[in-house]
C-alpha cells in the first residue's frame, strides 16, 4: 500500500523499569515502577509494511531502560550526578539517549515523543520541537 502523504504513521512501544531516587536531599530514597512510551514516526516501508521492526525498536528501548532498571539514579548514573533525577529530567535523559541510538540505527525515522509515567496519574511528555 503506497504511503498517503497527508497522514503520518507512528509506532508506540511501551517498556517498564523500576528505579529509586532521592526526592529531596537528606531524605531516604523512594522507588517507582516507571512506564516508558516511545513514539517513533516514519513512512511505512513498502517491502515489510512496517515503520520499523518492533524487535529493533525493543532493542533500542532496552538499551536505554537497562541503564535505569533497578538502579539508584542519584548514585548509579553519572548523568544524574549534577542533575536531579526528577521525572522531567529522567524523561529528558530517555529522549536524548533514545534519539542518539535511533539516529545511528534508523536515520530515516523520527523520535516524535516519549512519555514517561511515574504513576498512573502523573507523567511527562517530551516532544520533538
Amino acid at each position: 500500500m503506497p504511503n498517503n502523504p497527508r497522514i503520518k504513521t507512528q509506532i508506540v512501544r511501551r517498556a517498564y523499569f523500576s528505579a529509586a531516587h532521592l526526592p529531596y536531599p537528606g531524605r531516604s530514597g523512594v522507588g517507582h515502577n516507571y512506564v516508558l512510551d516511545t513514539f517513533v514516526e516514519g513512512s511505512v516501508d513498502p517491502q515489510s509494511g512496517m515503520v520499523m521492526p518492533l524487535h529493533d525498536l525493543d532493542v533500542a528501548v532496552q538499551e536505554v531502560v537497562s541503564t535505569l532498571d533497578h538502579r539508584f539514579l542519584d548514585r548509579d548514573l553519572p548523568y544524574f550526578q549534577d542533575t536531579s533525577p526528577t521525572l522531567e529530567n529522567i524523561a529528558h535523559y530517555c529522549f536524548a539517549f533514545l534519539h542518539e541510538i535511533l539516529i545511528k540505527k534508523a536515520p530515516d525515522l523520527v523520535l516524535a515523543k516519549i512519555r514517561l509515567l511515574e504513576t498512573d496519574d502523573l507523567w511527562v511528555d517530551v516532544i520533538r520541537a
Partner: peptide
C-alpha cells in the same frame, strides 16, 4: 485482506 498484515498497514487501511 491487507498487504503485509502489519499494525501499520492495518491503521493506514482503516484510515483510508
Amino acid at each position: 485482506i491487507i498487504e503485509h498484515g502489519t499494525g501499520e498497514s492495518l491503521g493506514n487501511y482503516i484510515f483510508n
